[in-house]
């Protein structure tokens, strides 16, 4: 465990707790893409199946359990408890356009052709694009609430910190996981445009809105 990975994990945790807290506090999930949240739920569940087969550390097990629980709670709030506030008209990204190709790719490009490994690979690939419905929704409505922007910033920071972590691990531990690295870089690139808007607008106290 190095500092980049720890701060990355904490940033990830902060992001998902922030989103859950915002929905709970405002009693509304307006502006939040339920489809991105369903895909993140799928990401955690398919990746953390090793909770049952492989013990790494208390930290690792606890974080995995929290991620799965928070993802399920968020999906529950969006699709059940605060369903009336869910902005489905603007959440029109087709999940199958991501899930089907990502599933196919996981079958073709993986470390080992076993069920658990293919599901792990699927989750890595899916995570890299799971935010697209959320970004698509923001581009459709032309704006995002400030807390939603903070959520995206924390989530993007987690990905960027993981890249630094991989550079560190490559040099100091000889660790190298090409699948995770390529998918992680793709994922981080998707946030670049958002990072730019966040720094130029939200950090200066303005709401995130896109130029018309």
């Amino acid at each position: 465990m190095n500092i980049f990975r720890l701060v990355g994990d904490l940033s990830h945790l902060l992001a998902i707790l922030l989103l859950l807290w915002k929905i709970w506090k405002t009693r509304s999930c307006a502006g939040v893409s339920g489809k991105s949240q369903i895909m993140f739920g799928l990401v955690y569940i398919t990746r953390y199946l090793d909770l049952f087969t492989n013990f790494i550390s208390i930290y690792n097990t606890t974080m995995k359990a929290i991620f799965i629980a928070v993802a399920i709670a968020t999906i529950y709030l969006i699709y059940f408890k605060f369903k009336a506030t869910y902005d489905s008209n603007h959440d029109t990204f087709r999940m199958e356009f991501l899930i089907v190709p990502v599933g196919g790719l996981a079958f073709l490009v993986n470390h080992d052709f076993t069920a658990l490994e293919i599901l792990w690979t699927f989750s890595i690939y899916l995570e890299s694009v799971a935010i697209l419905p959320q970004l698509f929704m923001i581009s459709k409505t032309g704006e995002a609430e400030t807390i939603t922007s903070h959520y995206l910033f924390a989530l993007g920071s987690y990905r960027a910190l993981y890249i630094v972590n991989w550079v560190y691990r490559y040099y100091f531990e000889g660790f190298f996981d090409l699948i995770a690295i390529v998918a992680g870089c793709v994922q981080t690139i998707l946030y670049c445009d958002f990072f730019y808007l966040y720094v130029t607008k939200v950090m200066h106290g303005k709401k995130l809105s896109l130029p018309a």
Partner: peptide, 10 residues
């Protein structure tokens, strides 16, 4: 390869 198979990252 062992390191990769253990997937110790989150």
């Amino acid at each position: 390869a062992d390191l990769i198979e253990s997937h110790d990252e989150l």
